[in-house]
Design a protein around this nucleic acid. Sequence first.
DNA 1: CGAACAATTGAAAAGATTCAAGAGTTGTGG
DNA 2: CCACAACTCTTGAATCTTTTCAATTGTTCG
Lengths: 229, 229
Amino acid sequence: MKKDKSGCDLSTCMFCRLCVPEWRPAIQAHKQTYTVKKGGLLFKEGDPVQGIFFLFSGSVKVHKHWGEEKELIVRFARRGDIVGHRGVGSTQLYPVSATALEPVEVCFIPLEFFQASLKVNHEFLYAMMLFYATELQDSEQKMRNLVNMPVKGRVAYALLLLAEKFGQDAEGNIDLILSRQDLASYTGTTYETAFRVMSELIQEQAIAVSGKSIAVTDTAKLQVYSQLQ
Amino acid sequence: MKKDKSGCDLSTCMFCRLCVPEWRPAIQAHKQTYTVKKGGLLFKEGDPVQGIFFLFSGSVKVHKHWGEEKELIVRFARRGDIVGHRGVGSTQLYPVSATALEPVEVCFIPLEFFQASLKVNHEFLYAMMLFYATELQDSEQKMRNLVNMPVKGRVAYALLLLAEKFGQDAEGNIDLILSRQDLASYTGTTYETAFRVMSELIQEQAIAVSGKSIAVTDTAKLQVYSQLQ
DNA sequence: CGAACAATTGAAAAGATTCAAGAGTTGTGG
DNA sequence: CCACAACTCTTGAATCTTTTCAATTGTTCG
């Protein structure tokens, strides 16, 4: 791991990686690295935007709320991902919350410094634009799935996506501890329905559950459910 | 209307407006303006990305397909809006189609020139990044609505959004001729369901229909349906 | 141990889709 | 100007999916 003086892992921190060397000292001065424990909030929907977060380790869910009860998980983020960028734009408020699913180490960049960097560092700005463009594509792909797929297809699709993003061990276990409730919120359904669908998938030996982790055992079966048409 | 030599309306063309004056001649040389008739395609999902479109007049729907029958309208665009930017990113293919709802005049910028402009024009790049960020927020807002709102709420929300975006005349008619089928595709439901919901809203005098245009007559009632919680 | 919370299951209800069929519109060619 | 075909519009009824409610079991943790 290449780390800079403040302990920032250059291989995973997009911000530090993209900054030209001369800027490093300024970044050192502005960024803050700290940890958030499991269940802790990085920021909350409706809060004024303070800055951007880069994750060094751990994982978080990014979610939008609906009344007191309901939520929709928009995205999961892990080591190397950016969080809080959804606050950049017209409004001054975060449109989503970010909650740690396990202890996370974050690199926090205050908004003013982040924006100043964007203004000065063309490469970084370009990378950020591409990043937003990709996020937009993903978001709309997910939107179509939510609208046109039955729950089973959405769960299958979600598991394939998570397996790819978080990786799997030898047994196929996805490297993310995910509660049924969170899976339900991610696939836009209720806890009970998510549970029932999971049971079916286990029955069909498409997936397996051991302890708290979920394993994809038959990718092809899941692909059938998450297929177009 | 301030127009440049090629007939580009500077007040509505984000691209031309953001370009520094010295760049205008180069733009003139690269961009193409032409019209697409009603029902015509600007580009199709899966096509290789050729460039970006800026709309001078008319309106288009941006939609994703699902098998042969189903589609989800992701967004409507009008005068001044950008279309085709969803193709920018990892893949080389448009993730959506764009179809003219009425005759449109477009300013087409080939991708290479668009990207070259981004590389050179910092202001433009910054504006594009903010634009993507805003689109992302809108997309996720819509996603939450699709997941958590009943159809009636989604239709109500859609109509309020369209009224705001496209404007209304004295009678409240939204300045966009929208078929029930398109409204259904936009709200992620079927033609019949959209029809029934519209009938209810007419009954409740929240909206009115005269000819092909839809009028919002009682904003407050629609807001109740599209409300959070 | 007991309290709180997560998991599990069944049954009823709600919401939306699908199918089907008839009414109304539009456009075309004779 | 009418007849016909091809649409879109409109409505009812059956069906399916998903949610909701409710009740029971299992697990965790102070």
